[in-house]
């Protein structure tokens, strides 16, 4: 069983590596880049909304702060994007702790309202502090990364850069989920009382989850700025936050590999559905809605059980005959 999973992973990796050579156009490469960044952000979201089951609908706001922090440092102060990245991580850390504390007192739907409010406030502030952020006109000329003086151009080079990053965060996420932190995350959502009696400091763990999620989101935001080269507050709205949760749901809540699938499906599907013309948003949301109600385990699990069901049916038939 395990070796089958490994084979699938290796095949996917190889596919990811040769992908840009098969689809070598600015359109697809940018799309793949956005997908990779979305994967990273969903890894983070997985910690709170996936494992500790705390709803976060303000991901876009955190992403925006990370993006603007990094971009402002590199455009206004001329610092390297690497410093911007570190700054974004720091900012994410601060926001995570900042949002983590309210999450102790507020839960469930109330928390979701708080995160929505947070996202909206961030967007409004970014939009209206024009002298600092460029306001509604946005921020242009966000530079690209360089390693040892060689620029990593947008396009194929940056795709590999993002792929490496994504794999790094994937490895990190998997390690965390399997560690005692990850088990603690699950414990406090499944059975808080038992968790407490086992000596888990619920407050500390909740804040930790939020901090991790915020770091991932801020990091993703910084990379997003580098990918697009341009930032505008209007991008980071409530709908954007919703998309990340949809990715989480489709992939299977709590499953790190599922995060990857979810992000890929949600980012790429609207593009693949372009042929539906005016109807593609409706089709996409209907599919997502049906998925939410009928496939709460996520689509991969749903498809797997469908496959098993079919196998069983055909298996039974042949058993009867034989």
């Amino acid at each position: 069983m395990k070796s089958r999973k490994n084979i699938i992973s290796i095949v996917c990796l190889i596919a990811a590596v040769i992908l840009p050579w098969l689809f070598n156009s600015t359109y697809y490469l940018s799309l793949f880049g956005q997908t990779l960044i979305n994967i990273i952000i969903v890894f983070g979201l997985n910690f709170i909304t996936g494992l500790t089951r705390n709803m976060n609908l303000g991901t876009a706001g955190i992403m925006a702060v990370g993006a603007y922090t990094s971009a402002l440092l590199s455009t206004r102060l001329g610092l390297s994007p690497w410093i911007g990245l570190v700054a974004a991580i720091l900012v994410g850390f601060l926001i995570g702790r900042g949002l983590g504390y309210p999450s102790l007192r507020i839960s469930g739907v109330y928390l979701s309202l708080t995160t929505i409010a947070f996202g909206e406030i961030v967007r409004l502030v970014l939009n209206n502090t024009t002298s600092v952020t460029g306001g509604a006109q946005g921020l242009t000329n966000v530079p690209v990364f360089s390693i040892f003086g060689i620029q990593i151009q947008r396009g194929i080079p940056f795709y590999y850069f993002l792929l490496l990053f994504m794999l790094l965060m994937f490895w990190l996420s998997t390690r965390i989920v399997r560690s005692k932190w990850g088990r603690a995350f699950k414990a406090i959502s499944d059975n808080p009382d038992a968790a407490e009696s086992l000596g888990i400091d619920i407050a500390k763990i909740k804040i930790l989850a939020f901090t991790l999620a915020a770091i991932y989101a801020a990091l993703g935001g910084a990379l997003y700025g580098n990918l697009m080269g341009y930032l505008n507050p209007s991008t980071f709205n409530f709908d954007f936050s919703i998309n990340f949760v949809i990715m989480l749901m489709i992939g299977g809540i709590g499953i790190v590999r599922g995060n990857i699938i979810g992000a890929i499906v949600v980012t790429m599907l609207p593009e693949l559905l372009r042929f539906l013309g005016d109807y593609y948003q409706l089709v996409f949301y209907t599919i997502a809605f049906i998925g939410a109600i009928k496939l709460p385990q996520g689509w991969p699990a749903g498809i797997a059980s469908l496959a098993k069901w079919i196998a069983r049916k055909t298996g039974l038939k042949s058993r009867k005959e034989g």
Partner: peptide, 28 residues
């Protein structure tokens, strides 16, 4: 009714998605 029995994430997302479907219908 279907969402009532599910966890918070689905109840929230379910209503959000339902809203988006209505929005698209109105637009179309």
């Amino acid at each position: 009714n279907p969402l009532r029995k599910m966890t918070t994430i689905f109840t929230i997302m379910g209503t959000i998605l339902f809203g988006k479907m209505i929005y698209e219908l109105i637009r179309l």
